[in-house]
Design a protein around this nucleic acid. Structure first.
Length: 574
RNA sequence: GCGCCCAUAGCUCAGCUGGAUAGAGCGUUGCCCUCCGGAGGCAAAGGUCAGAGGUUCGAAUCCUCUUGGGCGCGCCA
């Protein structure tokens, strides 16, 4: 169900017929202003300009030649050459009634293999707020592609192989005596800080750490064993968070850096055989003309250090090779923060040049901005430390619990805890997802936990209210079958909004901006609230009641499905 | 020095990739409970879209410059 696409095709076809020009888009868009109908055709004016014709005249002809049938109740030329379309109520009814027995989303006409690289924490430390956005946004995008029937492959490219592991292993060797390792690693952040302190302060420790990196990478059994133990603990920490945040990443999606280790020499060899490698100050680099550094000197992509070690650019090249050639990806999406944009530009360019990425494989860096505190500086604790993700989640749940308790003092505590758990996590996710990922955003507890405005609590409330209607009506949602019959303006508005679900989700798979879906769901919830105020359901006459319940059912399904794409579980009561 | 991103209502943010009179929420000022969950709905006030040029039927959106902010630029990831 994609009204926009349906109209676009109708008008584009007759525009082509009318002008003889191939591939002219009709530029159908939702109308912002209700006086301009539901949809508008914007594509006539540019074409008229190109052909030196009168745009209003051409628009008039286009209206007459486009077979809209029963679809529209009003089609008119307006302004300099817009065509405004008002859909017929009967068409809205028919479409909604047909939709009842269909999946909410159409399967993609051309299913793609889409690889998405997200979350990808560094296992040396515990996950902190810096990982939040990528994890949440990536997860929503992944769920969306899946729902549209694409072949979606999650890749959790976590950092388990860097230089820091030498440091951590050394600290484990020296500090592990006495306490069992498990208890030491309970606070990974603390453990990392201690190791880092010793590394910076003690040259002997630092030297041992460097040796341990070499031993680890060359397969020393002892080092490997300690490394495995550390990684296992760290992975458990991540998984605990994924469960808490309801993130769809699982073991099978783990494709850490270490897994590319044995491929790295081959990557460098291929670059060399293609004459792309240059040695500079002992390091092996690829220089591309389009990248310049300070003072206009060429900027290298270093793929092998002077000591022979490999770098994350090398691993990323190996990952591109794997994703494009072995996984046969059509699109590879990197949900990584904006500061790495130069890195990805370089790596993508080298990958193309060297043929690791074929020309029909699209490499996309979906970057996102920084999470800021209320002071407009990167979000930190009062003492200036990074905030651990677990702590953030628990604080959110606690705050939600206080709010839920004040709203429902008589509810059993267990129930309030359950609701607070869902609301607290939903609030964090929704606050992030509802903002355009490209910009930095200010993290504010009061705004995100507010029940007013475009927030998780408002959305969950709207859903709970819907569920309450079903309980009151004594009707089983799954069993209920009745036809929609739109009359009141609020019913019409809601019906139209419902039918736009598909086009919104399909757009999301194009531009990967989940805030578009949030906005849609917020407007849907708003349309429902207005309908709910203006059109009584339970007190209506039987015929009217079942038509309204039919609208309510479509709303319930759509809201639940949309929230699920965002990784948010709706609550039946709150 | 070079490059990327950002600047929209008092505050927090949208603006669907160039469409008509720039929209929400908070806050402010009012209104609506004989009503299915008031955790709601309705309304008002609030704007030089940082500034200046340019492109064109049409610009918050594209181009150039200026100002102000964030980030990144050789062996960390």
């Amino acid at each position: 169900m994609n009204l926009k696409l349906q109209l676009e095709r109708l008008f584009a076809a007759s525009l082509q017929q009318l002008t003889g020009l191939p591939d002219v888009p009709a530029q159908v868009a939702r109308s912002k202003n209700p006086q301009f109908g539901d949809y508008q055709v914007n594509g006539v004016m540019p074409v008229a300009k190109r052909l030196g014709r009168n745009p209003r005249e051409l628009a008039q002809q286009l209206c007459q030649q486009t077979p809209l049938g029963e679809l529209a109740s009003r089609v008119e030329v307006a302004g300099p050459g817009f065509i405004n379309i008002t859909l017929a109520n009967s068409f809205l009814d028919q479409s909604l009634n047909a939709w009842r027995s269909l999946p909410l989303l159409d399967a993609a006409e051309r299913p793609l293999t889409v690889v998405i690289d997200y979350s990808s924490p560094n296992l040396a430390k515990e996950m902190h707020v810096g990982h939040l956005r990528g994890t949440i946004i990536g997860d929503a995008i992944a769920r969306t592609f899946e729902a549209l029937g694409h072949r979606l492959l999650r890749q959790n490219h976590f950092g388990d192989w860097g230089t820091q592991f030498g440091m951590l292993i050394t600290h484990m060797q020296e500090a592990a005596q006495g306490l069992p390792l498990g208890s030491q690693l309970r606070d990974l952040e603390q453990f990392y800080r201690e190791a880092k302190q010793r590394f910076d302060a003690d040259p002997i420790f630092a030297e041992k750490a460097r040796q341990n990196v070499v031993r680890l990478q060359s397969g020393d059994a002892n080092c490997l064993a300690m490394w495995r133990e550390f990684i296992a603990t760290s992975v458990e920490h991540c998984e605990e968070l994924y469960r808490l945040l309801d993130i769809s990443l699982e073991r099978s999606h783990m494709m850490p850096e270490s897994r590319y280790n044995e491929r790295l020499p081959g990557i460098v060899a291929k670059l060399e055989s293609q004459g792309l490698l240059t040695e500079s100050a002992g390091a092996r680099c690829v220089f591309l003309e389009q990248f310049q550094g300070k003072e206009g000197e060429p900027l290298p992509v270093i793929v092998q250090k002077s000591d022979g070690g490999y770098l994350y650019a090398t691993t990323d090249l190996a990952a591109i090779d794997y994703r494009c050639n072995e996984l046969a990806a059509d699109r590879v999406l990197y949900v990584v923060d904006a500061r790495q944009s130069l890195h990805f530009q370089q790596v993508f360019a080298v990958a193309r040049q060297a043929g690791f990425a074929t020309s029909d494989c699209s490499l996309e860096h979906l970057s996102y901005g920084t999470m800021m505190g209320k002071d407009n500086k990167p979000f930190k604790t009062r003492s200036g430390d990074t905030v651990k993700l677990v702590d953030l989640c628990h604080e959110s749940i606690e705050r939600a619990f206080a709010i839920v308790s004040s709203k429902n003092p008589d509810m059993p505590e267990k129930e309030r805890r359950r609701i607070a758990g869902a609301v607290g996590i939903a609030a964090i996710k929704y606050a992030d997802l509802s903002k355009n990922r490209n910009s930095d955003y200010v993290f504010d507890w009061d705004t995100m936990l507010s029940f007013e405005g475009n927030t998780a609590p408002y959305m969950l409330y709207a859903y709970a209210r819907l569920c309450s209607v079903w309980r009151r009506a004594g009707v089983d949602l799954a069993q209920f079958q009745a036809a929609v019959a739109v009359k009141a303006p609020q019913e019409r508005e809601l019906a139209l909004r419902l039918l736009q679900y598909g086009e919104v989700v399909e757009t999301l798979a194009e531009d990967c901006l989940p805030n578009q879906l949030c906005l849609y769901l917020y407007e849907l919830a708003g349309s429902f609230m207005q309908f709910y105020e203006a059109c009584p359901i339970l007190k209506a006459e039987p015929a009217e009641q079942s038509a309204r319940l039919a609208l309510a059912k479509a709303t319930t399904r759509t809201l639940a499905a949309g929230l699920e794409l965002l990784g948010i579980r709706p609550l039946e009561q709150m």
